[in-house]
Amino acid sequence: MIAESTYKTALSAVTALINTIPLLGGSQSRDDYEQALEIVEHLIDTDDENPLIDILATKIADYENSAPEYAAFNASLAAIPRELAMLRTLMDQNGLNQTDFAEEIGGRSLVNMILKGERSLTLEHMRKLGKRFSLPVSAFIED
């Protein structure tokens, strides 16, 4: 059983943390959101194992998913098929272009059609991409 003094100390610490970082308490203020972003950035640079990073990242994501200013962006993102979003992300994160997928997908024109949404990745494409980037095939498939 938790000692009363430990319980009170924990509640006091949480209250102090929420007063310091209002986004943790459910604030929907743009300023509080930006403050939380700065804190996460600082923690990643100075103490990347700090558990506060995960807690703040969740609150930041909640803000970004519900803030009216991100509604149009979130809607356009949700409209992109997962396989296409994954392919674009892999390209961006790895500095790749359409000619870099000859082994996994085929020629530049096929990759271009996939990126335009005119064609879809086949299961075989997904398997090859998964193998290349050490990802499960499910990373490319809609839930």
Rank of each mutant, 00 (worst) to 15 (best):
A78P: 11
I105A: 08
T46L: 04
L77A: 09
L52C: 11
D47V: 07
Q93K: 09
A102G: 08
D62I: 04
I55A: 11
L77I: 03
D54I: 03
A67N: 10
L90P: 05
G106I: 00
E103C: 03
A67K: 00
A79Y: 00
E104D: 11
S76G: 15
A72S: 15
F73S: 13
L90Q: 07
D47I: 07
S66F: 01
N94F: 13
S76P: 00
Y63P: 00
Q98K: 15
A72V: 11
A71F: 08
M91D: 10
L77H: 12
R108F: 12
I114T: 05
M91A: 08
T89I: 06
G107V: 03
L96I: 02
I44Q: 15
F73A: 13
I114A: 03
A85L: 13
D100P: 08
A61D: 15
Y70R: 04
A72P: 02
N112E: 02
T46F: 06
I44Y: 10
A72I: 07
P68W: 03
S120D: 10
L77F: 13
D92H: 11
N94A: 07
E83V: 00
N50A: 10
N74F: 06
L56E: 06
R88D: 05
F73E: 14
K116V: 02
A75T: 11
A72E: 15
F101L: 08
D54K: 11
N65W: 12
A72G: 03
R88W: 01
Q93T: 05
Q93N: 09
S76T: 03
A71Y: 09
L121C: 06
M113E: 15
D92Q: 14
L77N: 15
L110M: 07
L96F: 07
Y70D: 10
I44K: 15
K59I: 00
I53F: 06
A78H: 04
L121V: 02
D54C: 08
F101A: 05
A78N: 15
I80C: 10
L115G: 05
D92K: 13
T46Y: 07
L84R: 14
D45F: 05
N50H: 15
K59Y: 02
I55D: 03
I105Q: 04
I114S: 04
F101W: 05
S76Y: 03
P68V: 00
D48Q: 12
D92E: 14
D100I: 00
I60K: 01
E83I: 02
D62A: 14
Y63E: 01
